[in-house]
Design a protein around this nucleic acid. Sequence first.
DNA 1: GTGTATGCAAACTGTTTGCATGGAC
DNA 2: GTCCATGCAAACAGTTTGCATACAC
Lengths: 145, 145
Amino acid sequence: MPLPDAREAYAGGRLTPQRATVAAAVSALGGAFTVDDLASAVHAIDPGLGTATVYRAVGAMLASGWIERVGEREGSSLFAHCGQHAHEHHHHVVCDMCGRTDVTGCPVPESEQPSTPNGFLVTRHEVTFYGLCPTCAGRLEREGA
Amino acid sequence: MPLPDAREAYAGGRLTPQRATVAAAVSALGGAFTVDDLASAVHAIDPGLGTATVYRAVGAMLASGWIERVGEREGSSLFAHCGQHAHEHHHHVVCDMCGRTDVTGCPVPESEQPSTPNGFLVTRHEVTFYGLCPTCAGRLEREGA
DNA sequence: GTGTATGCAAACTGTTTGCATGGAC
DNA sequence: GTCCATGCAAACAGTTTGCATACAC
């Protein structure tokens, strides 16, 4: 059950059964999630796995770049698995209905990247798109919204 | 001392001395701030003003669109006064050193606005730029970094 | 006069930490 | 064998809420 991914999710750290479970839960969620969402998914597999461990695993996965903070929902951070885009410059699209995410390129024109709007020296930017995923958009249309 | 702004900061609500103080503190900060930053600025003027009141005032200012959530710093939300841009589509640039902010246009090409990256129906997006304001950039250069 | 805003303190939520034990490497 | 990761519970920070009082309208 140790997914091939699980190893790289904790690059540099140890791969314990608990960490493998957390990584599996992330894959199973397949979209943006809060730590709470993740903890629920994890507890469905292993009810004995502590919350602190989930937080520590999330910290480790962030450190390795396997997941990324993509925004926030209801006061908690939203995270998402970056897939094979982990080390490229990219952004995320989050479905407002089901939370599914996808990776998308950077919409900021190359020419503006390290630009100086109003005299500021811009070094980085955060972009997150929100909307509906194909499935939810389709369902909404079929139900005639 | 009731700034002309104070009235619109709480559009629809009541303008109390406390709320005026909070609005004045926002203007005085002149940049991105956390509720904690704001509370400190407010307490410098009126030490007796309660924290809950600051939070409620922030809620009211958000509701009126006079301030906006522009990102996050150390686990707290970052807010900024939108000035005369309150009702236009805009984004913010935040100085990593001093926290000063400015308003900037939307870098997302018009053609991509309600676009469909990967089949998603995008309805909105959040963009925040981070970098150095002219003052901090200048200081850094002068000190030879 | 009516109803909203305040102030205080208690309650809550999300997150982090200390410490002894267990297990990956 | 060494050191990292775990689990539990306690500690924490930021934020919200209940309630009686004060005041903007």
